[in-house]
Amino acid sequence: MAKVFIYPATSLILSDMVTRFGHKPLGSAIAIRERVQTPGLESPPLQITPEEPKKGLAWAAVEVPAGVRGRMSLYGPMVEECDAAIIINNADLAFGCMGCARTNELVKFLLRQKEMPRLELEYPKNEAEGVQFVAAIKKFLTEIGGKK
């Protein structure tokens, strides 16, 4: 089983596919669930406090906006933890959406810097491309040791 970072990190379809092939998806749901389930925080809806942008300094300098650093405090540890990554570029908003373009650029860069299996695909524009898209993800997840 591999820990697979999914991009967009909010994509339920990607998360589901990674799980179906016996891997662990790393995405927004996990990071946010940990925060929401942590007792004692009073900062709804995401339970992110001003401490998170400070933790984000590990991945982005102080002159980088607080929103980027706050997001990196969630995604940064998962980028470090992952064994593989699937990146879908130019995805439709309905497929999965990460709010800040600067954070997205940084997350993708950090994933590309890691020496690990990585699949990068463009979001499909028609049914034929959609079939190829799913097949490519299936092949990748199988090759990194997933269920047949």
Partner: peptide, 11 residues
């Protein structure tokens, strides 16, 4: 807004 929740200032 953009970033308010991730900056910890929404509350």
């Amino acid at each position: 807004s953009c970033g308010a929740d991730y900056s910890g200032v929404q509350e």
